[in-house]
Every structure is written in C-alpha cells, then in structure tokens.
Design a protein around this nucleic acid. Structure first.
Length: 313
DNA sequence: CCTATTTGACCAGC
DNA sequence: GCTGGTCAAATAGG
C-alpha cells in the first residue's frame, strides 16, 4: 500500500475495524445460539451484510471509488458523497491527488469542496446523537432544497485540531427525515476521560476498599428509540480482573440492537468506594471508547431497571 | 463574563 | 455571476 493519505488510511482502518467488530459480534452470537431467545438467524444475516459492506467500502476507498453512485449502500452508515476525486486531497496538501479532472467534471456541484471522506446517515429526528460534541458554525439555504443546511464542526477543533464536520439537512416532511452527512474522522480525544483515567483520577484507587468493583456493560444501544425489542445478553459471564493493582473487576454485556447502527455506545458502571456501597456511577461511551456522558448514578437495587431502560422496553 | 449560536459577508470553485 | 462552505461580528443565554 503506497502513499495513501492519512484520511484514506484512517477511513479504511475504520471500515475494516467495523468489519472486525461485526465479525466478532457474529462469532459471539454463534457461540450464544443456544441461549438466546430472539431471532439469531435474522441478526446473523444482518451482521454478515454489515461485514461485507465494510469490506466493500474499504475496497472502494482503496480504489478511490468513494461515493460513486453505484455504491449506494446507504443504510445507517456508509461511505458516500460526491465524486471520488477530491475526497482525500486534504490529507496531504503537498502531494497532488492522483484522481483526475475528468472525474471532477462529472460533479455538478459548485462551490468549495470538502476534501474529506464522507458518509451519511438518515434519521427521523433532528437530533442525531452520534456521541460527539459539535459546534454549529453556519446555515445556508440550498438551491432547490426546501430546508436549509446546517453546518457543524467538532467542538475540539480549536484545542485539538479535530477536522471532523457534519452537515444536517431536513429532506422530508412527513414523516420527517433528516440527512446528516459526516466529513472526516475524529482525531480528537474526548477529554471527559476514559474509564481507567477516571478511576485513577478519583480517589477510588487510593481508597483501601478491596470491594471496589467496576462492571462494564458493553452495549450497542443508541439513544434513538429504534432499538426496540432487542434483549441484553451477557458477553462474558465471568467477573474478570479489570485492573490488578486496584482490585477492580468487570463483566461485559451486550445489548443487541440494530446491527447496522453506526454507533455502539457502551456503559461503564463502577461501584465507588466513596459513595454508598449500594450506589454505582456509570457513563456512556461511543464505539471508540470516548466518554459521551458521565457522572450518572444508579442504585444497585435499580440495576435491573437500568437494564430495562437501556433496552428501551 | 464566558461560551455557543445566529447571520450576513466573504471566498473558492465552477 | 452563481452556489455552497466558512468566517467572524453580533447576539443570546447561562
């Protein structure tokens, strides 16, 4: 693989990672076949579709076909956009992109190009909780479009130089539908801190309480209400050491949801020595492990309800 | 005061 | 000159 721009490499890496993740899930699912009480076959098929999609998209990016119109795998997350040529130019300003003018002519769009890999997502709600923090920087009426387009950039652009942006536009009235187009990948590290850091930063690790526990609930819940009727199942029945020095332990759970969902928040709940022993603190993560929101509390007696809520049931 | 959003101006690419 | 993407001053809101 010679001289792929950083963004392209990243895009391919992300696509392949997705594929690996879905494959892992499929493997897990096949292992659990006997215990589940929902439609494994259907879910397996969906996962296979996602895995194949991941590989196709990766090849597409590799061949610089990103967004060509014959790759319309627009379900929940996919690589799409206008013509391929300009997509990755930004990655390496110095080196000229090899994609050509002749491809560019096919692109009827005017105005400044966004030179980043893109994919889109359609949601019935204006709010598309993708687990990232965005800051609006503009909105604009678009020719022949009923609704204005809204422009957002990653909130960490200034302090971390994250180049990710997204555009949101209402494209249908009834039922309402919104198209969110993402450009570029997040290079930011969400400084709300990852779970390990939180534990290290808090007094938990210095408290002489060997009963301190960390329970990791690894879910694929999104915050939308689309993930109905998918049960939780344990990914790992055993409590395993989380961190040897702090005597933390963990158990992993999956919430099986829409397998084509682009976002895989997980939930970490930790019993905090500083709080009542019956209280757990928990936080949500996106599929990169970045903390989306934290400082939530749940009583141990309400853990079942907690599960129920995550199930959206 | 600080931070986020709004909005018209500006600019790149056709 | 037109269109769409971005900037940044003004404004809103805590």
């Amino acid at each position: 693989m010679e001289n792929l721009g950083f963004d392209r490499e990243k895009a391919i890496e992300d696509e392949l990672s997705r594929g690996v993740e879905f494959a892992n899930r499929l493997q897990q699912l096949l292992n659990d076949q006997s215990t589940g009480d929902y439609d494994h076959t259907r879910f397996s098929q969906d996962l296979v579709v996602e895995i194949l999609k991941s590989f196709r998209n990766s090849l597409s990016i590799l061949n610089c076909n990103i967004g060509s119109s014959d790759h319309q795998e627009v379900s929940q997350m996919q690589v799409t956009g206008d013509s391929c040529p300009t997509k990755f130019q930004v990655a390496e300003e110095g080196s000229k992109n090899t994609c050509t003018i002749q491809d560019r002519r096919k692109n009827p769009r005017r105005g400044r190009r966004i030179l980043l890999p893109s994919w889109e997502r359609k949601t019935p709600s204006w709010i598309d909780d993708d687990g990232h923090v965005w800051r609006k920087y503009g909105q604009k009426g678009i020719l022949n479009a009923k609704y204005q387009r809204h422009y957002y950039r990653c909130s960490y652009k200034t302090d971390q130089g994250c180049k990710a942006i997204k555009q949101v536009q209402k494209i249908e009235d009834s039922p309402p539908q919104y198209r969110t187009t993402y450009y570029g990948h997040h290079t930011c590290r969400n400084l709300v801190k990852d779970p390990e850091t939180i534990l290290l930063d808090s007094d938990i690790t210095t408290a002489d309480d060997p009963s301190t526990l960390l329970i990791s609930f690894n879910t694929t819940a999104t915050s939308s209400k689309q993930n109905l009727n998918r049960p939780f199942y344990k990914q790992n029945e055993n409590t395993i050491p989380y961190n040897q020095s702090s005597l933390l332990s963990s158990a992993n759970y999956f919430l099986s949801t829409d397998p084509s969902s682009a976002f895989d928040p997980s939930v970490n709940a930790a019993q905090d020595a500083l709080m009542s022993s019956a209280t757990y603190a928990y936080e949500f993560h996106d599929h990169h492990g970045n903390v989306i929101s934290n400082n939530h509390m749940v009583e141990s007696t309400e853990l079942d309800d907690f599960f129920q809520q995550l199930n959206f049931s």
